[in-house]
């Protein structure tokens, strides 16, 4: 479902920024790992480990938690440094509703914009109008209604939110299961019931119907927020994520290069416990992690966005 044309016009007028080009980009990332990096050196380590893309940001979520204060878009110099360092796609984060940060990221030539709850929201009512951009967006979601509202606003990829910067996979599991379960329930409804379902989900009827028919979101669904080990990544894949974002889990660990490569292997062979076991050997210290039930309400990033 899109409000844009997805058909090319004539041979001599290439169409950029179409829904198909934006969503198709995410299709190319499937089965892969997208890693948070804060320097060009980390970006190269990620690329060498087999990451399909990197997320360029100033501080990984674990440090944003530690430092407190307002978290904003990263310095353009730092993002450009990472763009120049690697040939894989580079993503960067804007604050929720901060469409000027998104405009800046687009002008820098990032390949995907993450309108992210990890940064401090700039608007407590509205997300950015993502149809207005050529650069595609990925957004977080904790449930199906939230995912479909983001898609209605133009998101070309969804990630289940999890709880970033905790190294604890429990919220990632909760959100992915929630989205998958709600889609499963839609599939059992008849056409009459879908209207009421759309109302309950607070999402456009057309998108609800499309999800019911497809049995999946109309865009690629990754998992994020708390993946710290190869087994965590494989768990999210087995639960139905088409790929994983790993934030603090890699560069807050003892041996980032080794852990990054191990998570890539486990993501590809997510259903092969022997390979996951081999990938899990001698990785050194994992990030310490936080118990999510001790997190105060105000420090739960997943609650940001609506």
């Amino acid at each position: 479902m899109s409000t844009q044309s997805t058909t090319p016009q004539a041979a001599d007028t290439p169409a950029t920024g179409t829904a198909r080009v934006k969503r198709g980009m995410a299709e190319q990332l499937k089965g892969g790992v997208i890693m948070d990096v804060v320097t060009p050196e980390q970006a190269k380590i990620a690329e060498d480990a087999g990451a399909v893309a990197v997320m360029a940001l100033e501080r990984v979520p674990a440090d944003i938690r530690k430092d407190g204060g307002v978290a904003r878009m990263s310095d353009p110099d730092m993002i450009e440094g990472i763009i120049d360092a690697v040939s894989i796609p580079v993503m960067a984060k804007s604050r929720i509703g901060h469409f000027v940060e998104a405009q800046v990221l687009q002008s820098l030539g990032v390949d995907y914009i993450d309108e992210s709850e990890v940064l401090t929201p700039a608007d407590e009512v509205n997300h950015s109008d993502k149809w207005a951009f050529t650069t595609p967006f990925v957004c977080g979601a904790t449930n199906l209604g939230e995912a479909l509202r983001r898609i209605a606003e133009g998101a070309a990829m969804i990630r289940s939110k999890g709880e970033a910067g905790t190294g604890n996979v429990v919220e990632a599991v909760r959100h992915l299961r929630q989205i998958k379960n709600e889609i499963g329930r839609l599939r059992a409804l008849d056409n009459h019931e879908l209207y009421a379902a759309a109302k309950e989900l607070r999402a456009p009827y057309e998108l609800v119907k499309e999800a019911a028919e497809l049995g999946k979101l109309p865009v690629v669904l990754f998992s994020a927020g708390g993946v710290a080990t190869p087994a965590d990544a494989a768990l999210m894949r087995q639960l139905g994520a088409e790929g994983v974002f790993v934030g603090s889990g890699i560069f807050k660990s003892g041996d980032p290069a080794k852990r990054a490569a191990a998570i890539v292997k486990a993501t590809t062979f997510y259903d092969d416990p022997k390979i996951i076991a081999d990938a899990s050997r001698n990785l050194g210290e994992a990030m310490v992690g936080i118990n999510c039930d001790t997190l105060p309400e105000a420090e739960r990033y997943a609650n940001r966005g609506w």
Partner: peptide, 26 residues
């Protein structure tokens, strides 16, 4: 980069029935 990714009609030799929809992504 992705901003330049595009769709355009492409004639392919050996594929009858007019141009195919070319989706070019990075």
């Amino acid at each position: 980069r992705q901003n330049e990714s595009f769709e355009a009609a492409v004639e392919v030799a050996g594929v009858p029935g007019g141009p195919v929809e070319g989706v070019f992504i990075r």
